[in-house]
Amino acid sequence: MSRFEPLNAGNLRSDGRRPLELRSFSAELTTHPSADGSASVSHGLTQVTACVYGPREAKNRAQTMHDRALVNIEVEVAPWAGEVRRQRTKGDRRTAEFAASVKATFEPVIQTTLYPRSEIDIHIHVLQLDGGLLQAGINATTLALVDAGIPMLDYVSSLSAGLYHTTAMLDLTNLEESDLPSVTVAVLPRSGKVTLVSMETRLHVDRFEEMFKLAMEGGKVLRGEMDKVVRERTKVLARQMEGGAAQDEDRMETDDL
């Protein structure tokens, strides 16, 4: 078996990307019209969808909070998503950790205090996995929440970063994740506030700051991509709601008032 080379002589990664280059990103909103909000996101070959229900009456009243909404995350990994067929088992440790990370990321960002005693259910489906599970899960959830009209402080934008010798790399594939020390960062791009840092490997603290900064920058770029998709969809919806009258001129999008 040939040795995996994270970076070749020409400073290119195994899939031909430059170290800080992101994989091809695509997103789509309202993929499940029957949910309150939904979105599908892909980073290269990794494909994740998220469906949001709520805020709505909680199914289990005992778990609700008197002053805010409860956020529940359920994760479903398709058996064919990874390299090896794996049937989902309830209480799988990795999936449970993933769900807990997503919940911790969004709880401070969603304005849950507006909906006391209610419940927001987020269902994440992993359809195909080639590294960046947490990153894709968080980005899909952000878009699904926006689609559902649930108020948030900002987009949550997430990206993974890794280190090969002294070179930092962004948006890691499965091979890269298995081979290199890596971190996943989730950031609120406008303020630069970080809502998640997740690491499963060891990394020297000197290297960490650089990787972290680069992941944040990348996160801001990604927010721009996500926002483009959202605005396009909002434009279309707004136009349709005008009663379908022919209004083809673009609406102004400046933020100055």
Partner: peptide, 21 residues
């Protein structure tokens, strides 16, 4: 062969999650 059918919770949101299995 081996096979499986999974019903995702978002397919049946009004059902309690413990009937899905």
């Amino acid at each position: 062969f081996v096979c499986s059918v999974e019903c995702s919770p978002s397919a049946l949101p009004h059902l309690p999650t413990d009937t899905l299995p």
